[in-house]
């Protein structure tokens, strides 16, 4: 089966791809933390946060359409939360854009702020996920203090989620081939899920055996992390400076 994996463009060659996974992970965390800590009614102040991830995505060569499709897939939750705000926050507030001023429900402002914060976080995460191989990401998590076992879980999850999807696909096709119309597919799907769970457990057992046969005794012997290059350090420094600058500007304007 073919899978549209999130890191299908992670092997491209670009300055963004060449950055160390740890540097990208730190930059994404810092940028996201700064954006989401902006006040809940902030809208205009959030727009500059969109520029770095958008510019880096363009520089990476990852197709914009691929990013937009992923954005659409993960946006329903943020969209529905933002859409609910105008219903609950009905009091009027004055908003201005340059010389124009108008009065709107407060919920539109906070809803807009939620959407922009979502966009900043989602773009930053998509940038990280599409330009970094997941195994590198797991390694970066580990070297940044996430327990190695947990980072390993991420790597194994990434490997086996495709197998589980394949197995479910096969079970679904087998059920569909014998179902007349859609009737009877729901119980079959429930049975397929139960079967899938049992198969996943059996596979976990066999994978553990395969790991044990190659010397795994509960602790992973990982390769030591490579040294950060000057470009990686500069990238992190720029992300820190930009995020801190934008956040301090916001605090100064509030004050």
């Amino acid at each position: 089966m073919h899978h549209a994996s999130i890191d299908r463009y992670a092997s491209l060659e670009s300055p963004v791809h060449r950055l160390d996974a740890r540097a990208k992970l730190v930059a994404v965390l810092v940028c996201t933390a700064a954006a989401v800590s902006e006040p809940r009614h902030e809208v205009a102040g959030l727009l500059p946060y969109l520029v770095p991830p958008a510019a880096l995505i363009l520089a990476s060569g990852v197709p914009v359409s691929f990013i937009l499709k992923r954005l659409l897939v993960i946006s329903p939750f943020a969209l529905s939360v933002a859409a609910l705000n105008p219903i609950f926050e009905t009091w009027p507030v004055r908003v201005g854009l340059g010389p124009w001023e108008t009065t709107v429900r407060a919920g539109w402002v906070t809803g807009g702020s939620i959407l922009l914060k979502f966009l900043v976080s989602a773009l930053a995460l998509l940038l990280l996920a599409t330009t970094t191989r997941l195994s590198r990401l797991a390694g970066a998590m580990s070297s940044l203090g996430v327990p190695r076992a947990l980072a390993m879980q991420v790597a194994l999850l990434y490997r086996f989620v495709f197998l589980v999807v394949d197995e479910f696909g096969r079970a679904h096709r087998a059920a569909s081939a014998r179902a007349v119309g859609s009737k009877g597919l729901a119980p079959a799907a429930a049975a397929a899920l139960a079967g899938l769970f049992a198969r996943a457990l059996r596979r976990a057992e066999r994978v553990t055996q395969a790991m044990t046969a190659r010397g795994f005794d509960g602790s992973f012997a990982g390769a030591s992390a490579a040294r950060l290059r000057a470009a990686d350090v500069l990238f992190v420094a720029a992300a820190l400076a930009l995020s801190a600058g934008l956040r301090l500007r916001g605090l100064w304007l509030e004050g």
Partner: peptide, 10 residues
């Protein structure tokens, strides 16, 4: 089953 043997992402 090679999918048991090959458990790492790369």
């Amino acid at each position: 089953d090679p999918d048991d043997q090959l458990f790492m992402p790369e």
